[in-house]
Design a protein around this nucleic acid. Structure first.
Length: 163
DNA sequence: GCCAACGTTGGC
DNA sequence: GCCAACGTTGGC
């Protein structure tokens, strides 16, 4: 099966898990765990697939910004941190038999030479329409249009690193 | 630090 | 099943 690559934006507070943290991880790969929102869960479980592209966004800081690009390297599987009472993401309603929460593995691809700030997005005719710009949006994972993906690359004068 | 927007919870 | 109360998110 040869499915078309899709694109996503993943949001993280850098004080919690930053793009640099991903870069420093073993194999520059880590599991995207701790998502406890059903809409995002559905995406992680059903939609986000190996090979998909990720814009990595730093939120809840003075200058929110897209800092880099990552790639999905593992399809959705149960988020086992939900089963660990010591985890801050522990959810007693989730079990091995009936997992509620899912995660994917992502791998560092490249920093953006020119990180794209929220203000940049706001001022851009195409990018101002991105999901992350929507008022009140709280999804930590959301779809990105191919045109939006291309535009981010263009700003950076980059060739698509996933091709 | 403020506060608007959102998702979740729980009483009824 | 409604909806008010609450906790969290996240831009500013």
């Amino acid at each position: 099966m040869n499915k078309k690559r899709r694109y996503w934006l993943m949001k993280s507070e850098p004080s919690c898990f930053s793009f640099e943290d991903l870069k420093q991880s073993a194999g520059q790969t880590d599991c995207w765990d701790g998502v406890r929102n059903y809409q995002a869960r559905n995406l992680l479980r059903d939609e986000i697939k190996k090979g998909d592209g990720i814009l990595f966004y730093h939120s809840n800081i003075k200058t929110p910004v897209i800092v880099g690009i990552a790639e999905v390297v593992q399809d959705g599987y149960p988020d086992y941190t939900a089963w660990d009472p010591k985890s801050e993401h522990y959810d007693p309603k989730s079990s091995v038999e009936n997992p509620i929460w899912y995660m994917v593995d992502i791998q560092f691809v490249t920093d953006l030479e020119q990180p794209v700030t929220r203000n940049d997005l706001k001022a851009h005719p195409v990018l101002e329409k991105m999901g992350v710009m929507k008022r009140g949006n709280r999804l930590s994972v959301m779809p990105v249009g191919e045109n939006e993906w291309q535009e981010i690359l263009k700003i950076n004068g980059m060739v698509d690193p996933l091709k």
